[in-house]
């Protein structure tokens, strides 16, 4: 197949109850044991990472399982060293080390190498992921600086390409996202909407993997986008278009039904939005790399870009984000064609 749809990427997943706070809505995706893959771990616990040169990141997989480094994993450390991020997904075999010479520096004005350790992993803020993805194969550690500068400028976090300035400035707000969105039992993924538009689709190999990467996804990645969108809303209380309010209630007996009805309407709203993107045929840009019997593949469309990891045709991991072009013009793209 030359194309792949989001529905196919999420095959075997079941949507859970929508979580909705402020501008952000998350549809948890759960899967039964037979739809998950317990051979895979995330780098959260059993890995050590260091940088060996500017733009070179070495990760050691200390577990006896295959490690998938999630898309655009970033390491922001407390050492006097240049923080780094990977612009793509990585696969590391059991008890093996792997060097990535495509890593990006995310601290323009900081020198020094990161010494080896089990450093806390973040995921790049949403606004940096697309530029990182586009040039993922290039070896140039400074490739993200201009995008970081733009992000910092936009959010009044300074004008230097140092991601720490953004993360420090919005630390409290970003922390709130972790508390506000909770993982549910058997969750392996999520569809993320901001202001009623699908901005991301994530699928992890198993529940443990998901719970380990979810804080980074919700905090730095999607949290940063929700934060910026809310700030652009001139301080008004953000309520996404897809959020429904409780209907009229005339007696106590109506209450529970009114709550269920509102929940159903919200689900319908989100279903309708997701229906508009679920069958998007994404171009398979070819095999990027792979090991341990797994293949990393990149996908692109004017709506979404991202990467998947598959074993034959079975999708084990996937991470897709909406493109900035699509997000800017979504209302136009989604408007009905004219007819009389």
């Amino acid at each position: 197949m030359a194309t792949l749809t989001i529905s196919e990427i999420l095959r075997g997943c079941t949507p859970g109850r929508i979580q909705s706070v402020g501008y952000m809505q998350v549809i948890p995706l759960t899967a039964t044991k037979d739809m998950t893959d317990d051979r895979i771990v995330s780098p959260a616990k059993m890995s050590s990472m260091r940088t060996t040169d500017y733009g070179s990141m070495s990760i050691k997989n200390e577990s006896d399982k295959i490690m998938i480094v999630p898309s655009q994993a970033a390491y922001v450390v407390k050492q006097a060293a240049q923080d780094h991020a990977l612009p793509h997904v990585g696969i590391i075999g059991k008890k093996k080390s792997k060097s990535f010479d495509t890593a990006r520096c995310i601290q323009e004005n900081q020198g020094g190498y990161i010494s080896s350790g089990n450093h806390k992993m973040a995921i790049l803020p949403f606004m940096l992921r697309e530029p990182a993805h586009k040039e993922r194969s290039e070896r140039d550690y400074s490739k993200l600086w201009s995008a970081i500068r733009r992000l910092n400028n936009e959010t009044k976090a300074g004008n230097i390409g140092n991601l720490v300035h953004f993360l420090d400035k919005f630390k409290d707000e970003l922390d709130q996202f972790i508390a506000e969105f909770e993982p549910v039992p058997n969750q392996v993924g999520a569809i993320i909407l901001i202001n009623g538009k699908v901005v991301g689709v994530e699928r992890a190999p198993n529940y443990e993997y998901w719970t380990e990467i979810w804080p980074a996804l919700i905090r730095e990645c999607y949290g940063s986008l929700a934060l910026i969108e809310a700030k652009n809303n001139n301080g008004e209380i953000p309520v996404p278009k897809t959020r429904s309010v409780l209907g009229e209630v005339s007696s106590l007996a109506d209450l529970a039904k009114a709550v269920k009805d509102a929940e159903s309407r919200e689900l319908e709203n989100v279903r309708s939005v997701f229906g508009g993107v679920s069958e998007t045929e994404m171009k398979r840009d070819g095999k990027d790399s792979g090991s341990s019997g797994l293949t990393i593949e990149s996908l692109s469309h004017k709506r979404f870009v991202g990467q998947i990891v598959r074993e034959d045709e079975k999708i084990i991991y996937g991470s897709l984000i909406a493109t900035s072009k699509w997000r800017t013009n979504e209302d136009w793209y989604m408007a009905k064609s004219f007819s009389l």
């Binding site: 909705s20 209630v249 009114a258």
Partner: peptide
């Protein structure tokens, strides 16, 4: 107090209760 499914629904329910 961290309600998320969805945030604000309890307020809507109590508000509706007070109104009746």
């Amino acid at each position: 107090g961290y309600e998320n499914a969805p945030a604000g629904r309890v307020h809507e329910v109590i508000d509706a209760t007070r109104k009746i």
